[in-house]
Structure formats: C-alpha cells, structure tokens
Amino acid sequence: MPAGTLYRGREGMWSWVAHRVTGVLVFFFLFVHVLDTALVRVSPEAYDQTIAVYKTPLVAFMEYGLVAAVLFHALNGLRVVAVDFWSKGARYQKQMLWTVMAVWGLLMAGAAWPVLGHAFRELFGS
C-alpha cells in the first residue's frame, strides 16, 4: 500500500478523493461512449440497438450516477481553479466546497425526473 494515503482528512482531502474517483469513472465511461457513438459508421440499426440499452431502467440509474459524477467533478473543478487563481481561494476552500455541494444537490434534484422519469414510467406504468 502507498504510505500516507490519509493526509489530513476533512473537506480538503475528501473533496480531493472524490475528485479523483469521479474523474476516473467519467473517463472510463468516455471510452465506452466514443465506442458506442462510433456505431453510427456501421449502420443506423447497429447504433439504435445499442442506444436502446441506454433507455432501459437499470442503465437510466447508471446515467443518473454519471450525471452525479460529472456535476461534482465540474463544480469542484471550478473550486480547484478558484483555490489556485483567486487570492482568497485557499482561505474560503471549505465554504466553496459546501457551496459546491449545495449547487450539486439542487441540480441533482432538478435532473432526477428528466433523467429517471422514463425508467419510473416503465417500471410502474404510466
């Protein structure tokens, strides 16, 4: 095991950990996503059959997880930029993280029905 994997804990370290984890998840999805989109060069049928997988209820929940990861990585990334380039960034890094989490929660609530609605309609009938 790499030594010293716990630096100081609290907001600074855990947001750094979450940034890494969400970044890796989104990057791995990006490989899959470029491959599935490449099927438009095979045939419309091959593409539409594969995209049908994205419309199943199970994958809808994974898409909601993807949205969660992308949103956190984007908002926390802006916080990292502020910490690096804004003279008071480091002093307000905790407040900025809680702002990130609040905006993240708000956007996740707003995305819930648009992303998951069709899955609920399919699972429980319209």
Binding site: Y54, G117, H118
Partner: peptide
C-alpha cells in the same frame, strides 16, 4: 424527452 429521443436520426 431525455435519452428516449436519442437515435441515429
């Protein structure tokens, strides 16, 4: 319509 509308077209 979210992901439901995505297709080749």
């Amino acid at each position: 319509g979210g992901v439901s509308k995505v297709s080749f077209a």
